[in-house]
Simulated scan of single mutants.
Amino acid sequence: MINAQQSGRQADLIPVGDEPIQPTGIIVCITGGAAVKQTPLFDLHLRLGAKMTEFAGYRMPLHYPAGIIREHLHCRSRAGLFDISHMGQCRIVGARAAQALETLTPGGLAGLPPGRQKYTVLLNLQGGVIDDIIVTRVATGLAVVVNAGCKDKDYAYLRQALPEDCEFSEQNDLALLALQGPEATSILGTLAPEVAQLPFMHGCQAQIAGIPCRISRSGYTGEDGFEISLAAGDAQGLATLLLQQDGVAPIGLGARDTLRLEAGLCLYGHELGETVSPVEAGLSWLFPAGRADFPGSEIILAHLRRGPPRRRVGLSIEGKLPVREGAPLFNGETQIGAVSSGGYSPSLARPIAMALVETEFAAPGTRLTAQVRDQCVAVSVCKLPFVPHRYRR
């Protein structure tokens, strides 16, 4: 879950200063007159030679010296460590926390057992998406992870929308790491044996080298793997320990985006947004049968019954020219959609893309034309994902 309006393509920032930064929480620096936040792993990224960029208000690693393609392929073949501490972590505490949050989403939260996670969306009254989030049932209520670029609006919305008997709190003293790839389980299992048997979208409390962590089997790459929430002050120590394990390499935002694109996963601001319904985005499975009392229900239920006016699809690109976000798609002379995400696939060694197109043109095999600057590129609709998921079901 990366906020696409902060897509990592902003102008890179030059690291400032050589003084080590103490990982005691989110750190703020001033660059060009604007406050830019740093995660607790900022100093580690510089020592690892990361190329830093401003992303969703944070200085984050775009890639390390190996480069995006090698980082991507390493994650697909071994294990990659990601700093995702820019994501927002918050808690909703109270006996009715799950029921209260459920009223703002498609549903399925009230019956969530302890330790279970659910991917869902916050809905607006127009049938669009405020944000896509991960919700975990914990002893006191719910732990929620939101997109970095949506934190402020999400937190304000939740404070306003939740009832008084639910206590909402930001958890700015936490960091978040992701260990992803086919070797992630064997590596993390040597340090915390209890995680090896976790099913996908389940979590537990564990200690790694004496560091208390909340670990879930989840991620944003299509690979098996884990996300680790822990105190900000422990983040550099744990990240250093994980990077010392055979098979683990640091991975930046560039490869995180190419990995999720290959996996056909939605990116907020691209495939999801305030004017895109979850049904258009291919998330109809979020809605339990028979429920009709969620925000934007009139529009969304119509999409579920009769089909949406447009759909998210994969695109197979003919030739080597990448077709990127915003490229218009045509059937003959008529524009019928636009690319929502696109780029080079390191795993497939060719360009790929996702798009929102009019439903009439969403069937696999449909041939279309993309306009890339002054060139017309032949594309065809294909099924998602481009690379099969390898979650542990």
Rank of each mutant, 00 (worst) to 15 (best):
residue 346 P to M: 06
residue 128 G to L: 11
residue 11 A to M: 08
residue 271 E to P: 00
residue 173 D to T: 07
residue 76 R to F: 10
residue 10 Q to P: 08
residue 252 G to A: 03
residue 179 L to N: 03
residue 245 Q to E: 12
residue 302 A to W: 00
residue 123 L to M: 09
residue 294 F to C: 07
residue 96 R to T: 08
residue 220 Y to K: 06
residue 30 I to S: 13
residue 158 L to E: 12
residue 89 Q to A: 03
residue 383 K to H: 09
residue 27 I to L: 14
residue 206 A to D: 08
residue 157 Y to V: 00
residue 20 P to Q: 14
residue 30 I to C: 15
residue 390 R to Q: 14
residue 292 A to T: 13
residue 37 K to C: 06
residue 11 A to N: 06
residue 28 V to C: 12
residue 38 Q to M: 05
residue 256 R to W: 05
residue 44 L to S: 06
residue 15 P to N: 02
residue 160 Q to D: 15
residue 240 T to C: 13
residue 141 G to F: 11
residue 297 S to L: 01
residue 369 T to C: 08
residue 188 L to V: 12
residue 258 T to W: 00
residue 293 D to A: 13
residue 156 A to S: 12
residue 174 L to M: 13
residue 276 V to E: 03
residue 334 T to I: 13
residue 152 D to H: 04
residue 131 D to F: 01
residue 17 G to T: 00
residue 384 L to K: 12
residue 63 H to E: 10
residue 118 K to Y: 14
residue 202 H to P: 01
residue 67 G to P: 05
residue 250 P to D: 05
residue 166 C to G: 04
residue 339 V to M: 04
residue 363 A to L: 09
residue 90 C to N: 07
residue 240 T to W: 13
residue 140 T to G: 15
residue 176 L to V: 00
residue 215 I to N: 08
residue 269 G to Q: 07
residue 264 G to M: 06
residue 153 K to S: 12
residue 169 S to Y: 13
residue 312 R to C: 13
residue 99 Q to T: 07
residue 355 A to K: 02
residue 221 T to K: 09
residue 297 S to F: 03
residue 294 F to A: 01
residue 15 P to D: 07
residue 100 A to Y: 07
residue 358 E to L: 05
residue 43 D to S: 09
residue 325 E to P: 02
residue 80 G to R: 10
residue 51 K to P: 04
residue 16 V to N: 00
residue 96 R to M: 05
residue 4 A to V: 10
residue 323 V to R: 03
residue 352 I to Y: 01
residue 101 L to S: 04
residue 387 V to W: 01
residue 233 G to Y: 09
residue 228 I to N: 00
residue 359 T to M: 03
residue 212 P to A: 07
residue 138 V to M: 13
residue 126 Q to V: 02
residue 328 P to W: 03
residue 312 R to K: 15
residue 237 G to P: 05
residue 185 T to Q: 07
residue 145 V to Y: 02
residue 252 G to Q: 04
residue 223 E to H: 00
residue 378 A to P: 01
residue 128 G to A: 14
residue 163 P to K: 11
residue 42 F to I: 10
residue 267 L to C: 06
residue 235 A to H: 05
residue 93 V to Q: 02
residue 160 Q to S: 11
residue 129 V to P: 14
residue 57 G to W: 11
residue 104 L to R: 04
residue 361 F to D: 01
residue 157 Y to T: 12
residue 166 C to T: 03
residue 324 R to E: 09
residue 301 L to I: 00
residue 7 S to C: 04
residue 160 Q to A: 15
residue 174 L to F: 09
residue 103 T to H: 08
residue 365 G to F: 09
residue 125 L to A: 15
residue 271 E to Q: 15
residue 51 K to F: 07
residue 163 P to V: 05
residue 63 H to V: 12
residue 39 T to M: 01
residue 280 E to V: 07
residue 244 Q to N: 15
residue 256 R to G: 15
residue 116 R to P: 11
residue 312 R to Y: 07
